[in-house]
Design a protein around this nucleic acid. Sequence first.
DNA 1: ATCGACTCTTCAGTATTGCTGAATCCATCA
DNA 2: TGATGGATTCAGCAATACTGAAGAGTCGAT
Lengths: 312, 312
Amino acid sequence: MLDLSRLRALHAVQLHGSVGGAAQALGYTPSAVSQQIAKLERETGTTLLQRQGRGIALTDDALMLVRTAQEMLSLAEQAEVALEERKGRPAGRLRLAAFPSGARGLMPRVLAQLAADHPQLDLRMSEVDPHLSVGLVARGEIDLALAHDWDIAPMPAPEGVCSVPLGEDHCEVLVPAGHPLAALDTLETADLAGRRWVCQPPGTVCHDWLHTTLRTAGQEPDVAYYVAEFQTQTALVAAGLGIALLPRLGRGPLPDGVVLRALEPVPTRRLFAVTRDCLLRRPAVRATLRALREAAGAGPSRNAANATDRVV
Amino acid sequence: MLDLSRLRALHAVQLHGSVGGAAQALGYTPSAVSQQIAKLERETGTTLLQRQGRGIALTDDALMLVRTAQEMLSLAEQAEVALEERKGRPAGRLRLAAFPSGARGLMPRVLAQLAADHPQLDLRMSEVDPHLSVGLVARGEIDLALAHDWDIAPMPAPEGVCSVPLGEDHCEVLVPAGHPLAALDTLETADLAGRRWVCQPPGTVCHDWLHTTLRTAGQEPDVAYYVAEFQTQTALVAAGLGIALLPRLGRGPLPDGVVLRALEPVPTRRLFAVTRDCLLRRPAVRATLRALREAAGAGPSRNAANATDRVV
DNA sequence: ATCGACTCTTCAGTATTGCTGAATCCATCA
DNA sequence: TGATGGATTCAGCAATACTGAAGAGTCGAT
């Protein structure tokens, strides 16, 4: 009798292209995965993995078993969903992912509320980059991901994956208290010209938004300080070294000597939950979506931010 | 993640209607099955079994899981078949069943040859009554059953199950050496009238054939000795106490003082292999069918019979 | 009504299985 | 040639699953 957990190991190896990657995804050591597959080989009398350079390659037999594994895992997931649906209240394990500022600004409240309301629910969360989350959901490693879709770059959703709008997150400009811009109530894009910036490193959405917006206005932002962490950014601004663009979500308590000013038009990112279609039937997912929508509508969390978290 | 072996346990409970029956079918103790299902209940947070009188009843949730289990087990079996087919030579476990005289007269040679030719083949055999074998094959407990279809009672084959003709088995009449019938070369039905018989108990095919045939000829057989075992039957015949109808298959060495006489028309039972359609693709099944056909054509085995075997 | 038979479950003990971490092996890259 | 990255092997330990005995509930018979 083929063993499902061994098949899942093989499936993961195919998915990640390596024994190590599969092990990481499954929460094992490479040794365990290697042994599981060795047993599967002995049980079936086949060769499943072949060494190829430093890594491995799957044989044709293995690929056939991977297809079977895929179907069996899918059946198992459907059955679990159906059981929970039939029961009608959230239960089982729910693997969540969130981008860093969402993980800080939104998830704590949501997780606490869900845990309190549904004791049978086994919640897990990992902080991931937003552009990775869709892939993780599609591959079944994550059940529901909190993602955002910055004005500028709408996200594509692959087959079987859907995104549910949750609300919006707005950005404001953080300026030193004595700064000329601090005298204004509302800033416009033109006011940002020629300023010195504290900004996150390239590849983050804040960075991209800043550059795209200013370049559209014919300017190149003068970023003097590339800093990932929120606390460091505010310290630099408080020291009068520049101004920064901050999303409201995930913003922590501000030190003295800095003020926030609204921007017009408001830089807005839309928040989404990304999940697989079939999971929409899970009460656990429905409850989580509900909680996320409420939390996103209610604004950023109280108990947000600590010194080591990064603003993304 | 649902565990396949636990699901299989649940599936077996549904199939057999009891924990004990499932345990027997799976080769475990009832305790093990009970614990497996208790774990499945804890893992899914559902109730699967309910006590009903002395036994148990499956809940709706359990029935849903049984359907899933059925599909997953079927997928696993198909994958195993495909692997073996791709490999091209018999391998894996093959669970055989045979009716008693077939198990003695045909299977030893066949099993020995298969084991010698295909070291990767893991052969198992159980002796079962022919009328049970079709059900066992249909339920997936047996992969291939040796069955016979006595002239009188053709066997029906349920969906997904097929029977492959292997050959024929003939019956002869065993008479004491000094008996009047011993003087004849070939006996006819009329010669059997008024004889005293040694016969197997009701419910066996030899018994049924004898009664049906003689009653068709307007007679009631006078069965003085109901005896299941071949050795005892021949001893009774040798002692001059009656005559017996013996199938050639599974007949052992005869003691002195008895002779065999052919009957006209010859009582014939056709031999079949019964298996599931999808298994016909297994090299193991194809090799077994080939070996069975050869053995059935070659006549009864040399190393047949021992004192405790029953003639059926 | 009580006893005995039957069935499932619980419990304790044991055997098996599966995982981790270190050592090893192999191929690649500097 | 040495260093790196990846997979495998091995020994030891932890978790799991099974067995067998005892317990609890139900049914049928005396």
